[in-house]
Simulated scan of single mutants.
Amino acid sequence: MSYILVIDDEPLICWLVEEALRESGYRVKTAPDWQKGLSLAREEAPALVLVDLKLPGKSGVAVLDELARLAPGVPGVLITGEPGEVSVPQAAFVLRKPFDLSDLRRLVQEMVPLSGKP
């Protein structure tokens, strides 16, 4: 089973997303920074990437660009707490903080349906 990659410098966000998705049957890997996230993607291509818009040292948009080269076709979800309209062609979806975990689960299930039992 492929995994969901979460890249966010907020430990609580990583933990919440990981717990919510694992409870739903997904395998999840988290990265506290863009370097670790890209390293994990190089080791094994994820099925989906959720990445924070504002990461120290590199924007989430730039991370999605690099991930597209490393793992073509892997969809990306941009997570942001920024107010206003955020349009990012590299992202399949923009998820606004704070988000409801049931909305997160529904979004991930639509993008990466579970097949069989975990």
Rank of each mutant, 00 (worst) to 15 (best):
E43Q: 15
C14T: 06
P83Q: 10
P56A: 02
V77E: 06
V112L: 13
F99M: 09
Q35Y: 02
G73M: 05
D9A: 12
D9P: 04
G81Q: 08
A71C: 15
V51Y: 10
L78N: 02
L40A: 06
Q90E: 14
I79K: 03
A91Q: 12
A92W: 07
F99L: 08
K54E: 03
G84N: 10
I79S: 01
G76I: 03
E19V: 13
T80A: 03
S24Q: 14
A20W: 12
R106A: 15
K36G: 01
V49S: 04
G81W: 09
V86S: 09
P32M: 11
E82A: 13
V88I: 12
L38K: 09
L55D: 02
R96K: 15
D65K: 15
L107P: 00
M1N: 10
G76Q: 03
R96E: 11
E43N: 06
P75N: 01
G60K: 14
P118I: 05
I4W: 05
V108M: 07
D9L: 10
D100I: 07
P83G: 11
L16Q: 13
V94A: 02
V112Q: 08
G84L: 12
I79D: 01
L12G: 03
L67E: 02
P72W: 06
V63K: 08
V6H: 02
A20C: 12
R96L: 11
R69Y: 02
L114Q: 14
A91P: 11
K58V: 15
S39P: 00
G25L: 14
A45Q: 13
S59T: 15
V108K: 13
R69Q: 08
K97S: 10
G37Q: 11
R106L: 08
A20I: 12
V108T: 07
R96H: 14
P32G: 12
E44C: 07
W34E: 05
V61N: 03
I79T: 04
P11I: 04
V112I: 08
W34C: 03
K54H: 13
G60D: 11
V49L: 11
K54N: 14
V108F: 09
T30C: 12
E85Y: 01
L48P: 05
A45Y: 00
P89K: 08
E85S: 06
V74Y: 01
I79Q: 07
D52I: 05
S2N: 13
T80R: 05
W15F: 14
G84E: 07
E23T: 07
E44A: 14
L21D: 04
W34F: 11
